[in-house]
Amino acid sequence: MRTKDMRRSVAALAALTMAGACTAQGIEVHGGQRQPVRVDVTGTPSGTASAPASGGPKQDDGDSDGSDGSGDDKGTRETAPTNPPPTPTPPPAPTPAPVLWSQGDEGLDVRELQARLRQVAWLFAGPTGTYDELTVRAVKGFQGKRGLPRTGKTDSVTWARLLNMTREPGKWDLYAYGGQPAASPDPRCLTGRVLCISKTSRTLRWMVDGRTLTTVEVRFGSEYTPTREGVFSVYFKSRDHWSTLYDTPMPYAMFFSGGQAVHYSSDFAARGYYGASHGCVNVRDEAAIAQLFAQVRNGDKVVVYW
């Protein structure tokens, strides 16, 4: 190589060596002039890209699903799904109490129900032994007063409450308005034409030769004015009789013993057995006694017995 060419090569090599040294010290050579270069703490010149060293810490670019535990993941962190609280099951509806009696039923049990309703002043008629509209109203009133469903039907709950508030009705309570079967006729009633009157069943049979033609309910005198017992005969009939002794009407009167007679009584029709006569035999069915009055003759037998 020629000496001149060797000098150029040495000079070029020296320039490259100096450029590298200056760059390391923050000096960059451009066109033979040194320029300062800003160097960051990592030694990488500003404005130049530098890939992270292999195995170095990964920088968070905002798209990571990880979290440093500071709670600044801005909702990007997924949470485990949770089950919603179970919907409470409503309690089953209470089972209605069984119905014992309702409108249209008949019998002794209904009669007792009516007698007990009378004791607590929810019923003022009867007992009749028939679960009628008046009984329905009385039961509804009793139920409503005690916070029970106002059905008008007597269920086991209503009946238990009524039992706790009342006493057991007696025979006359149960048949205060009649309905008791007629007693068997007295043997003295089996012949001829007879008004056969039983104090036990409080009934009057109109009998001809042992055959019953009519049966009506009757009421008697009180313990202070009792109806006489025995065998009598009709001695006087008065269609529109008026009692001068008690100043009261006695229609369809058929006298059999002194001032005692079989006759219609409006008081008996209104009050039932909660009243009493002054010794007469009261009949409350006006239509029935009107027919009876037309059939009975003076001299017909009257038998009053227990």
Results as ranks from 00 to 15, higher is better:
F268P: 01
W122E: 15
G258T: 14
G126L: 05
F255K: 03
F293Q: 04
W172I: 10
T158M: 03
D65M: 14
T154G: 02
A12P: 05
P92E: 15
G75V: 09
L123C: 09
P88D: 04
Y224N: 08
L134N: 11
F220G: 05
E168Y: 02
A138K: 00
V234A: 02
V110T: 08
A93D: 09
S46L: 11
G179L: 01
T244D: 15
S46I: 12
P98S: 06
R271G: 05
L134G: 12
P57T: 12
R219T: 08
P81L: 06
A183R: 03
R116K: 14
F256K: 04
D267C: 02
R219D: 11
S67V: 09
A138Q: 00
Q33A: 13
V99F: 07
P36A: 11
L174N: 04
R284E: 02
A97N: 09
A270Y: 06
G129F: 10
D105C: 10
T166G: 06
G141N: 11
G32T: 02
V303A: 00
W206K: 05
N282Y: 05
I27H: 14
C196D: 11
V303R: 01
V216I: 09
T76Q: 14
G275Y: 03
H241E: 12
V110N: 05
C189A: 12
G275H: 02
T212N: 05
D285V: 08
K4M: 07
P249R: 00
T135A: 03
S233Q: 15
C196L: 05
P91D: 10
G62R: 04
L292N: 01
T79R: 09
L163M: 11
G104S: 10
E78P: 07
T151E: 08
E78A: 15
A261M: 07
S238R: 10
V208D: 09
T135I: 04
V157H: 07
G62Y: 03
P149T: 07
T158L: 03
M165S: 12
T44A: 06
G141R: 09
L162P: 00
H30Y: 11
Y305V: 08
T215C: 07
T44P: 02
G56K: 13
L204C: 08
W306K: 13
Q295C: 01
G299E: 09
V10E: 13
Y305R: 07
T227G: 05
D61R: 05
